[in-house]
C-alpha cells in the first residue's frame, strides 16, 4: 500500500470567524472531506500545523474541546507571514490543517479533583480546550477555577465565553487587567495575575493547576502557586517553540533532549524544572 505523505494537510473550510481583539481571531474549521472528519480524533493539549497555501504553515494548539464533535477551532494573533494571510481569510475559504500532534493533558487521571487554570493574554486558547473539556464532563471534577488576565480589557479573548463562565455557578472565574488597562465599565480585578491569584488564594488541596502565559507571568506566578501549596508535579503547562514539521524531524523545537512537538507540548513543572532554558 502507498504510504501516506505525512506532510499533506487536511483541507478545512472556515465555518465561522470571531474577532476576539483587533489582532486576534478565532476560526471554526470543518473538514471538507466528511470521511476525514469522522475519522479525526484528538485530545486536550494537542496542536496542529495550519496552512495558507502559498504562504506556509503556522503552529497553534487546537483551542476547542475534544468533547465538541464535527469541528476544531484555533485562535491566533496576526503576527507573521502566515498569520497575516490567515487573518485575511473569510468564512467559506479553504485552509490546511495537519495534526493532531503532541502529547495531551492527562485529564482522565484528574477525575475527582479540582482544577485551577491560571493564564494570561493569548495563552488562554490552549487552556480553553481543557476548560471546556472539563465543563462538558463537569461531574468528573470538583471546583473549577479560572484566573485570567490581560494587559487591557480589549486584549481579553473569548469575551463571550468569559461572560458565560461568569454566569455559571459551577465555575469560579476571576478576570483581571493590568493597571491602566481597565475601562469605566470594567467589573473585574485590576492588577497582575500573580497578585490577583495570591489574593484569591484558591486551595491546593486535591487540585491540579494549569499555568500558561508569557514567560514573565510564569516566572512570577510559580512562587505564588508554591506558596499556595502546589507541588511542581501538580502544575501543568504547555510549552511552545518554533516548529516546522510538528513530528520530531525538522529539528528546531527541542528543549534539551526533548522535542516540544513530540515529547510535549504538555509538561509538568517538575519536568520543566529539569529542562535547560531553551524555550
Amino acid at each position: 500500500m502507498e504510504e501516506k505523505n505525512v506532510y499533506q494537510p487536511y483541507l478545512m473550510r472556515i465555518a465561522s470567524i470571531i474577532d476576539e481583539t483587533p489582532d486576534v481571531k478565532t476560526f471554526r474549521l470543518e473538514f471538507i472531506n466528511e470521511e476525514e472528519g469522522k475519522q479525526f480524533n484528538f485530545l486536550a493539549g494537542q496542536f496542529g500545523e495550519y496552512s495558507v497555501f502559498g504562504e506556509g504553515e503556522s503552529t497553534f494548539c487546537i483551542a476547542s474541546s475534544p468533547t465538541r464533535d464535527g469541528y476544531i477551532e484555533c485562535t491566533f494573533r496576526k503576527m507573521g507571514r502566515v498569520t497575516k494571510a490567515l487573518a485575511s481569510k473569510e468564512v467559506g475559504d479553504t485552509i490546511g490543517f495537519r495534526g493532531p500532534y503532541g502529547n495531551t493533558f492527562p485529564i482522565d487521571r484528574w477525575k475527582g479533583k479540582s482544577l485551577l487554570f491560571v493564564t494570561g493574554g493569548i495563552a488562554l486558547p490552549p487552556l480553553r480546550c481543557v476548560i471546556w473539556n472539563a465543563l462538558d464532563t463537569r461531574e468528573n471534577f470538583k471546583d473549577v477555577t479560572v484566573v485570567y488576565g490581560a494587559r487591557s480589557v480589549q486584549d481579553l479573548v473569548y469575551k463571550h465565553e468569559l461572560d458565560e463562565w461568569e454566569k455559571r455557578s459551577d465555575v469560579k472565574l476571576i478576570t483581571t487587567v493590568d493597571p491602566g488597562g481597565e475601562t469605566k465599565e470594567w467589573k473585574g480585578e485590576i492588577g497582575f495575575v500573580p497578585t490577583v491569584l495570591e489574593k484569591a488564594a484558591p486551595s491546593s488541596a486535591d487540585t491540579i493547576a494549569l499555568l500558561c502565559g508569557p514567560p514573565i507571568m510564569i516566572k512570577l506566578t510559580m512562587p505564588v502557586l508554591t506558596k499556595l501549596g502546589f507541588s511542581p508535579d501538580n502544575i501543568f503547562t504547555t510549552l511552545e517553540n518554533r516548529m516546522k514539521c510538528g513530528i520530531g524531524k525538522c529539528g528546531r523545537c527541542n528543549v534539551g533532549k526533548y522535542f516540544v512537538c513530540k515529547d510535549g507540548p504538555v509538561f509538568t513543572f517538575a519536568q520543566v524544572n529539569q529542562l535547560p532554558p531553551e524555550y
Binding site: Y7, S51, F53, G54, E55, G56, E57, K244, C245, K249, C250, G251, R252
Partner: peptide
C-alpha cells in the same frame, strides 16, 4: 537532517 518548510506560489 534538520530541514525548513516553505511555500512558493
Amino acid at each position: 537532517t534538520c530541514f525548513d518548510i516553505q511555500d512558493e506560489t
